[in-house]
Amino acid sequence: MKRLLIAAGGGGDAITAALVHAALHGADAPALVLTYAWERLVVDPVPGPRGAADFTDLASPTPGLALVTPRTAPKAPVGSLLPRLAAHLRPTLGLLDPYDGTVGLARQIEAAARWCEADRIELVDVGGDIVARGDEPTLRSPLGDALALAACAATGITTSVYVAGPGLDNEVPLSDLMPRLGPPAFALTPEDTDGVLGVFDWHPSEAGAMLVAAARGVRGVCGTRDAPRPVLLDDTARQVHRLTCEEALRLSPLAGALDLCPSLEAAEKASTAICGFSEVARERDRAATAPPTPRRHEAPSADADAVLARFAVWERSRLAEGLGYVTTRRITEDLDLTLPEALTLYGTLRSGTSPRHVAPLWRLAED
């Protein structure tokens, strides 16, 4: 028997699901995590989620279930970090393909439950947009979470919804979110993070990185990429809240509207009606204006002194904003680092008498 977990929103939630599973059942307990291959344009240049047809070498131990293994590969031009995650996370990874909407997702989840011999589901979200009303001005990516919640409800299998690190995704204001979640069920510990810590050396999930940092005792103000406000890492940031599926459905108008939704296109229309936007359409718009080749894949070498000087100027500005920590993605994208520049800078920041790497974040240093 394997535990069955659903990562509500994609790559960062898959990591969080592994973390929550370790806290609840122990890292070595057999588990399957079903997750979307919906990794945004920073990883995948093609807008929207990926389906099973976008990969080679998916394993299929039973009809309706596709497993991601280290041998799995995305078909160009799409991109995905799921095969690499499959090599690093202890739970087995399975693919959620949302193109047949809630109906198709429910079939996939039912197939996974039969294969796992599981009589319950643990649905995991980092941040809390799974209980968004839809009218929050900072809401950016509710659709995957709402589809997963609606699909779990459609299976009829008992489902617990876990929200880890409330507010860390910067989508629903914490003051609005906490009354919806109620008291925490438990708090993550440093030991719970051991199996996922190294993933953030290459995975861009900022909410996941901050959750791990908070669980490991990091406290302070953290800056992320393209967010409306910095995030305060305090004791709340390591908490995990548990809701029933029915409670979560009552809180999410979008999930309620997706009952028996037959396609991703229909789900997009529901999102536009309730939230005022479709995140897939937003990705299409961004992809249409994105440069064809990201700069960070150019340049054969890096001048260490020049890169460090650029970072120092940038760091002073971030300190002036009141930040104490930043994510890897924030540094890389703000400074538009090439791969050699990033390797040089992060190697330098890890060394010396006062290393800046407070895994998996970076500490800003006062002069």
Rank of each mutant, 00 (worst) to 15 (best):
P74I: 11
L65V: 09
S60A: 15
V46A: 13
R84M: 08
A53T: 14
S80N: 09
T62G: 02
P83S: 10
D57E: 14
A76V: 07
F55D: 00
D54T: 05
A66I: 01
S60Y: 05
A53I: 12
T72K: 05
L58H: 02
A53H: 14
T69V: 10
T56R: 13
P70K: 07
R50A: 15
T56E: 14
P61E: 12
L81R: 04
A52D: 09
L82C: 12
R50L: 15
K75I: 15
L82T: 07
R50S: 14
V43R: 01
L58M: 08
L65R: 10
P77W: 09
L85D: 00
L82W: 05
P70H: 08
L81Q: 03
D54V: 06
V46L: 12
V46G: 01
G64S: 08
T62W: 06
T62R: 15
V43A: 03
S60F: 02
R71F: 08
A53C: 13
G51L: 05
G64W: 00
L67A: 12
L81F: 04
T72N: 02
A76Y: 00
P70D: 07
L82E: 05
L58Y: 04
A86H: 01
A52W: 03
V46C: 11
P63C: 12
T69E: 03
V68S: 03
T69K: 03
L81S: 05
P83C: 05
P83K: 03
P63M: 12
F55M: 01
